[in-house]
């Protein structure tokens, strides 16, 4: 039982990261129906911004988190403006291929600038282990989980209670109708990219802190897992992304913990296939009738 609970803690820490990244996928998909494959690399850039802020400027965890989120938001908006906006009325496959191109650009660019090797993220705060009835919880795990929950609550508040959030929801339902109602569609899409990228940036810093190892290709696999998490919960649905993120994190941990770690990635992809066959709209998704 202790081992099971310990594995749950491990899974929740990992799942937090997936959830934060998945939110960006889901928000962007929800609003412009684009699967932004460069999103995993935004997360990687977040880790590198955090790394530079802590090592070169010597700042602590909170400033690193804030600066990284702001930096990623800016990068996200810039990418949207340069790479995606001109393709807004092109076919979806064009935008998708562009996204893959942006992804490779970011990976190769980071390799060029920061070096291809692994960088070690500094210990920005003392990591203590709390032992609670046989369970070991590190302060880092608590911070990751807490930051994730706080950011998600903020996001939920933003989307449901503010004017920006209402604009986002309006654009996601029907961009043309929203424009007729006086919503600035371009600004709203930029805002969505900014928020999604900021969350990925936060995830990057948290991962750097937790595993203290970052490299230019670190976004690839978590990016895909987060995408699966978004699909699992129902792509375009914000609570679905959170649910999916935690679910994928826990499944991966349990498979490694009770089966063999060689199977963990295979099981995650198997889940993707099953979801796409059984419930393509995702766990929280509704089957909508095709409008003709």
């Amino acid at each position: 039982m202790t081992q099971f609970l310990q594995q749950m803690i491990n899974g929740l820490s990992l799942g937090s990261i997936y959830a934060l990244v998945a939110l960006g996928y889901t928000m962007v998909y929800g609003i412009i129906k684009l699967i932004n494959f460069a999103h995993g690399d935004i997360y990687m850039l977040g880790a590198y911004i955090g790394f530079i802020v802590t090592t070169k400027l010597g700042l602590g965890f909170v400033p690193a988190l804030v600066i990284s989120m702001a930096g990623c938001a800016l990068i996200g908006v810039t990418i949207e403006r340069i790479a995606y906006k001109p393709l807004r009325h092109a076919t979806r496959i064009t935008a998708l291929i562009t996204a893959i191109g942006v992804s490779y650009f970011l990976e190769a660019g980071t390799q060029r600038v920061m070096g291809a090797g692994v960088q070690t993220f500094p210990n920005v705060f003392e990591n203590k282990t709390i032992i609670l009835g046989g369970l070991r919880i590190s302060t880092q795990q608590i911070v990751i989980f807490a930051v994730t929950i706080v950011l998600m609550l903020l996001l939920q508040f933003l989307v449901t209670k503010t004017k920006v959030g209402r604009a986002m929801r309006a654009v996601s339902v029907d961009a043309d109708a929203a424009r007729l109602m006086g919503v600035n569609v371009d600004a709203t899409i930029s805002m969505t990219f900014a928020i999604g990228s900021a969350l990925a940036g936060a995830a990057g810093v948290l991962v750097g802190l937790y595993y203290n190892s970052i490299n230019p290709l670190m976004g690839m696999l978590p990016g895909i897992k987060a995408f699966i998490a978004a699909v699992f919960g129902g792509i375009g649905i914000i609570p679905g992304a959170m649910l999916g993120g935690f679910f994928i994190g826990i499944v991966e941990t349990m498979v490694a913990g009770y089966g063999s770690s060689l199977w963990k990635d295979a099981v995650v992809y198997l889940i993707l296939i099953l979801i796409l066959i059984i419930k393509p709209a995702g766990l929280l998704g509704k089957n909508t009738k095709e409008k003709v």
Binding site: Q3, N10, S213, T253, M254, G257
Partner: peptide, 20 residues
Amino acid sequence: TDYYNSGDTDFNSVLTKFKE
């Protein structure tokens, strides 16, 4: 005996299993 993949960063689940 258990295995990891090159590039993995999270080993907690397997190590938790080993610890028992």
